[in-house]
């Protein structure tokens, strides 16, 4: 459904997307994961026909975004990063406008259905300006889906809304899997893991990794990291003890305790509790640490 090949996009001399290639099949949710400035929005804007590529080819539903832009635009539903609204329109009027503009055959019925789906029906006569951020996000989704497009492109749809709404939006995205090809961007690793069938990881415009979340998860977590706080002895001595644990390669002081990193999939928690029992040191704290996305990118880049 989506075929991106050697896509390059420059802004002046700055290369925002650099030789990016990936595909998305019908019924698949593909995640674009990357930190700020990775090129997620730029890629999506090219797929929606908003920006032309500098080089490379992009096809949506078999149509080229440059030569058959209108055909591509007919097949895409798009939610930009910052939900674009007409503050002075009513909720219903807003969705109806986009439905009509995209040539929906029976716009009123389509709007009713989509408002119902996003639980906006009781607010349909309210002005868009009066909606909270979370409701605006739902309105943005309603707008993107009202014409039932085969391809749905959502640019960081969970950003800036409260945790309850985040879960809701993720559920909506997952529910799109049956009927649509979905491209979903995020800078939150765990979110992409939960929602997507496949992930493309971008960093500074380049693809640094791609695959299913499980495979990537393993690749991306080189070893495990634990936060350990032990009492009863001077920190220097504790550090020495921890360093002697089998498989541990670095021990770093952090706050009142240490972060220990070990190779591979090895879980050091048992070893740490054994250590504490053996030396009679009270175990104050022991928890695994999630690597930040930045750390993961750094490791990926070091590897590649």
């Amino acid at each position: 459904m989506i075929v991106v090949k050697d896509l390059v996009r420059r802004y002046g001399t700055h290369t925002a997307v650099d030789r990016l290639s990936f595909t998305a099949q019908p019924g698949e949710i593909v995640g674009l994961l990357g930190p700020n400035g990775a090129g997620k929005t730029t890629t999506m804007r090219i797929l929606t026909g908003f920006l032309p590529p500098t080089a490379g080819s992009v096809q949506v539903g078999g149509f080229d975004v440059q030569t058959d832009s209108l055909e591509v635009r007919r097949r895409v539903g798009y939610l930009p990063e910052r939900v674009p609204v007409y503050p002075d329109m009513t909720v219903r009027g807003y969705v109806l406008f986009w439905a009509r503009l995209r040539g929906v055959p029976r716009p009123a019925a389509a709007v009713e259905a989509v408002l119902k789906r996003f639980d906006l029906l009781d607010r349909q006569h309210k002005l868009v300006r009066s909606l909270s951020k979370g409701l605006r996000q739902r309105l943005g989704l309603a707008q993107a889906l009202v014409h039932n497009p085969p391809v749905v492109i959502l640019d960081e749809p969970t950003i800036g809304i409260d945790p309850g709404q985040v879960i809701e939006v993720r559920e909506v995205v997952k529910s799109l899997r049956q009927e649509h090809t979905v491209l979903f961007s995020s800078h939150i690793l765990s979110e992409v893991e939960q929602v997507c069938d496949r992930v493309v990881i971008l960093h500074r415009g380049r693809m640094v990794a791609a695959g299913t979340p499980e495979v990537l998860g393993r690749q991306m977590k080189p070893g495990t990291h634990l936060y350990v706080a032990l009492g009863g002895k001077a920190p220097a001595e504790i550090k020495k003890l921890l360093q002697k644990l089998d498989g541990v390669h670095t021990v770093r002081e952090q706050g009142a305790g240490f972060v220990i990193s070990s190779h591979g999939e090895r879980d050091q928690r048992a070893a740490v509790t054994a250590l504490s029992a053996r030396h009679g040191l009270p175990l104050l704290e022991l928890r695994p640490i999630e690597l930040s996305l930045e750390d993961i990118f750094l490791t990926l880049l070091e590897k590649g």
Binding site: F50, R73, V76, V85, W98, R102
Partner: peptide, 13 residues
């Protein structure tokens, strides 16, 4: 300003 131009320009019109 509102960014709606992005939706207008990606509508099939």
């Amino acid at each position: 300003r509102e960014g709606t131009v992005e939706l207008l320009l990606t509508a099939p019109i």
